[in-house]
């Protein structure tokens, strides 16, 4: 065996493979299982990194193909995040695990937000909720959580990794204090999910201030943003809504 605790490692690899299998990512699952063989051997094969990279390519393909809508968006998300985290690992290995622990509170919050949007996603099927208005309002609520609770947390996590690649370690306090506007200036190129941030915020504000109007006949939602002090309209746009498309597909990406 490769390590004294290789049996435990094998169990963990099998658990990982099973997790992807349950998700329906069968090729990725198969690819993960193939790494068990290394644990049975005496040394790490020289093509290990190449093999791992191939696994990422398989995973990226299956991840992008999960839905018929927005495949390019999903692919780009995957590639950008992979590139940032890979750079951070190569810069900090073998201490990368410590950095993962440091950002755990952010990952935890990310998970909480994801649970809410996940529950909404599961219920967005027109067979489950027949009322169009209700589906539209739920999608709006999901947008609010995605922009406020997911995108900003993920932006903080990626910003942390980007700084690691430069040899800097951002403190958790500083990470808490920063916001997406500042992060956007520091992560170049801007990750796809942070693009058109101003528009996403306008829509979020319209939802938060109940200034959005759903028209079930045309299946569109109008979002209006009015500056409180001046009364000036800063945003007024009508976007197509389909219960099959999530807010990020409201043609603003």
């Amino acid at each position: 065996m490769l390590y004294p605790d290789s049996n435990r490692r094998i169990n963990d690899i099998n658990d990982l493979a099973n997790l992807f299998k349950v998700k329906g990512h069968l090729q990725t699952s198969k690819g993960i299982s193939s790494f068990v063989k290394i644990q049975h051997g005496k040394k790490i094969p020289s093509n290990f990194l190449k093999k791992l990279d191939q696994l990422f390519t398989i995973c990226e393909g299956e991840f992008a193909a999960t839905t018929t809508i927005g495949q390019t968006y999903r692919k780009t998300c995957f590639q950008e995040i992979k590139a940032i985290i890979f750079s951070a690992i190569s810069r900090t290995y073998p201490k990368f695990g410590q950095h993962m622990l440091a950002i755990y509170p952010f990952v935890k919050r990310l998970r909480q937000g994801r649970e809410i949007t996940g529950t909404i996603a599961d219920w967005m099927d027109p067979k489950k909720i027949k009322d169009k208005n209700l589906r539209a309002y739920l999608a709006c609520f999901a947008h609010l959580i995605i922009v406020e609770g997911l995108f900003d947390e993920l932006a903080r996590i990626l910003y942390y990794f980007v700084e690691l690649t430069k040899g800097n370690s951002v403190s958790v306090d500083d990470l808490e204090k920063t916001n997406v506007w500042k992060i956007q200036r520091k992560i170049k190129p801007t990750p796809i999910f942070l693009r058109k941030w101003r528009e996403k915020k306008y829509i979020r504000n319209a939802i938060g201030h109940a200034q959005f109007y759903f028209d079930p006949r045309t299946n569109t939602i109008r979002f209006v943003n009015i500056q409180e002090k001046t009364g000036k309209v800063t945003y007024d746009k009508t976007l197509n809504f389909s219960s099959l498309n999530w807010p990020w597909n409201w043609k603003i990406l």
């Binding site: 990982l16 644990q39 949007t117 099927d125 990020w248």
Partner: peptide
């Protein structure tokens, strides 16, 4: 229906990276 794509991608990348750790690290459970 899928969850938010960027978050999902983040989790998948982190999960697969565990293979890196389990194969190369002397103590991946530290």
């Amino acid at each position: 229906m899928e969850l938010e794509d960027s978050v999902e991608a983040f989790y998948y990348v982190i999960l697969i990276l565990r293979i890196y750790d389990l194969t190369l690290s002397k103590n991946p459970y530290k």
